[in-house]
Computed example of a mutant assay.
Amino acid sequence: MDPRQARTRRSLRDAIYVLAAEKPIEQVTVAEVARAASITRDTFYRHAPTPVHLLADFLGEELDEFLAAHADLPDRSDTELSVFDESERDLLQHVAGHATIYRNAMSPRLVGPLRDALINRIENALTHHLTRHPHIAPMREAGISPERHARMLVAYAGTGTVGAIEEWLLSGDLDDIDAAARTIIAASPGWWLGRHPTP
């Protein structure tokens, strides 16, 4: 990315974060973002179709950074920690760090592009983990192809995680990230966590 484009991206990120913290994201206009970022409307549209999509893009970039650090998770069936302990805490830390923005993007659930950004990235991380550790998955039903089997498992876990995060955002303070992470992990099937029942 050339320096001018990088400056524009920084200005857009700063502008959308400030505006999204001040009021519901669906009330933020392209004109407001362009004015705050000192760019033209045409320049805005080169980066995103709407302020909601722009916000989802920038928050998604942050999610990409921390998920990359957790990309190659081991199968930790021999420890007290689950395979997702650290990544779940980091995900919730990200959400808590932008709590006002996320809450302003709910009505009552997260607006579509933002919800999709979270779900897609969680699903990508889970797909990567399942591809690396296919032996952890539960037995596949005969009428379901291997590809559909994996997609269904990942979709259920990704959407459920985001639903739990939405409830966490709606229901009070976000001070105890560890407790929230443990609650979400407790709701997850043991096989995802590398915990297999004793035969």
Score class of each variant (00 low, 15 high):
His196Ala: 11
Glu166Cys: 10
Arg151Ala: 15
Arg115Ser: 11
Leu110Cys: 07
Val28Lys: 12
Met1Pro: 10
Asp14His: 04
His196Phe: 12
Val52Cys: 11
Ala105Gly: 11
Ile122Asn: 06
Arg76Gly: 05
Val111Tyr: 14
Glu147Met: 10
Glu123Cys: 11
Asp14Leu: 03
Phe66Lys: 04
Trp192Lys: 07
Leu63Phe: 06
Ser107Thr: 04
Ser82Gly: 15
Glu167Met: 13
Val33Glu: 02
Ser11Gln: 14
Glu123Asp: 14
Arg132Gln: 14
Val95Cys: 08
Ile122Gly: 01
Ala34Val: 01
Ala164Met: 14
Val154Asp: 09
Ala20Trp: 05
Glu141Phe: 09
Asp116His: 08
Ile119Lys: 05
His128Arg: 15
Ala6Phe: 00
Ile122Met: 12
Arg13Gln: 04
Ala164Arg: 03
Pro24Ser: 13
Thr159Asp: 12
Leu174Lys: 03
Met139Phe: 06
Asp90Ala: 15
Leu169Asn: 01
Phe58Ser: 00
Leu174Asn: 02
Asp75His: 07
Ile184Pro: 00
Val95Ser: 03
Thr159Ser: 13
His133Pro: 07
Leu67Cys: 05
Trp192Arg: 09
Leu67Met: 13
Leu193Met: 15
Val83Leu: 09
Ala68Glu: 13
Glu167Ile: 15
Gln93Ala: 14
Glu86Trp: 03
Ala69Arg: 15
Asp14Tyr: 02
Thr131Cys: 09
Glu80Tyr: 12
Arg46Asn: 12
Ile16Phe: 00
Arg103Gln: 09
Ala105Val: 03
Leu193Pro: 01
Leu59Asp: 05
Arg89Asp: 10
Leu153Ala: 06
Ala37Phe: 01
Ala157Tyr: 09
Phe84Thr: 00
His47Glu: 04
Pro51Ala: 02
Arg115Met: 04
Ala36Lys: 15
Leu118Gln: 13
Ala180Tyr: 04
Ala99His: 07
Glu141His: 12
Val154Met: 07
Gly190Cys: 11
Glu123Tyr: 04
Glu26Val: 06
Ile101Leu: 10
Arg151Pro: 01
Met1Glu: 09
Asp175Val: 12
Asp90Phe: 02
Arg132Val: 08
